[in-house]
Design a binder for these strands. Structure first.
Lengths: 205, 205
DNA sequence: CTGGTGGTTCGACCAGTAGTCTAGACGATG
DNA sequence: CATCGTCTAGACTACTGGTCGAACCACCAG
């Protein structure tokens, strides 16, 4: 966990560290990023870095969390549609997905960070961080799944964990495909529509 | 590329190196594996290791390739069904998938290696290896996809690369779910059937 | 038997890594 | 002025993957 002292640091220093770390992690991923380079770029000493962060993993998860929160705040809240039919459920989801992806294509650095996260999170060194993130997202996922089942949009004959795992896997595959192809903004809605259609077909009752 | 001299090495030495490497990579993944530990466990010197392999990545991809080839040989060949209807296409696929997974659950070390591969392959250090592997699998994937489209089992209105990416993503998610849950052998057919059904629903025309 | 020669092995060494630790600078407070 | 907590600097440790030159050894020609 990031040490609370970090909040007391002068904001410009905080920004310098965060910017340096984001740069490094976005371009190199977790493993190939060098903490020494971050320290140098941020213009601080090793002692200071370890005074504010527990280590490389801590810095990485902190930066990732901050950036994701920024993205989510920018995209706006998502409310699970508790009523309506299956079509309404899926169009709500597609709408949110579209908003997310448009925001993401606008900030390629964050996209790279997230892609790197998806690649590195399964590695032993980051399992704790991965679990932590999953715990944070889990209620949202379960809730959305339950809502989908309630309106008859999602099958109920398989374990929820399996359904979620598969859908998340599909989402990751789609994201990397989208982000590496970098399609036109105008094409995005059509593409996203097709992608949500695929998810819908996969989990249809 | 593994140096050709390796083939001339005494078989027991080859085995010692391969076994040590498989052990290390399966338990630690690529990044957290230590080449020094492999060298020690294999009972050779650093110079010899680098005499036979170009480096860590080379050893890793070699071990992975050997083990995957062993698995595929054990599972037997897969022939794309060129005729028949969609049901036949999917049942052939489900059958092959089932054979693969039963073989995989029988050798957890190999399963761990493959899981580690999926996690580490997107990392910058392994992109070449990843591309190499993909190039090897690509014709097979494209062929199978085309066969599916020919019998009307797979939609044709989306880029082949996107369809393949999504299906591979689903497969990875399912594999890790299956392998971490380690379900009964008896339950496997039912589960695999459901999983293939999900894939079918996702890519249905 | 001598002296190469080429394939093979060894381990010291290099530049880099993440992380630890101690000495001290700075400022507030008694 | 003295002391105490906050903070910084950077030397240091134990490790990493990778390089390199020396030595070893079976072979063969003279």
């Amino acid at each position: 966990m990031v040490r609370p002292r970090f909040a007391n640091l002068a904001p410009e220093q905080q920004q310098a560290i965060l910017r340096a770390a984001l740069d490094e992690f976005a371009t190199h991923g977790f493993h190939d990023a060098s903490l020494n380079r971050v320290i140098e770029a941020a213009g601080i000493s090793k002692g200071s870095m370890y005074y504010y962060f527990e280590g490389k993993e801590d810095l990485y998860t902190y930066v990732a969390r901050i950036e994701v929160e920024r993205l989510l705040a920018e995209v706006g809240p998502f409310s699970v549609p508790s009523q309506g039919d299956a079509d309404a459920f899926w169009s709500t989801l597609a709408d949110y997905y579209l908003r997310l992806m448009t925001a993401l294509t606008a900030s390629p650095q964050l996209a790279a960070l997230i892609r790197g996260w998806a690649a590195a999170s399964k590695t032993p060194a980051l399992q704790e961080a991965q679990q932590q993130l999953e715990q944070g997202m889990w209620p949202w996922l379960v809730q959305t799944l339950a809502a989908g089942q309630r309106v008859g949009a999602v099958r109920s004959d398989l374990p929820a964990a399996l359904l979620i795992a598969v859908v998340v896997g599909m989402g990751q595959a789609m994201d990397t495909w989208l982000v590496t192809r970098a399609p036109d903004i105008d094409d995005l809605p059509r593409l996203i529509g097709a992608l949500v259609e695929m998810i819908r077909g996969a989990v249809r009752p």
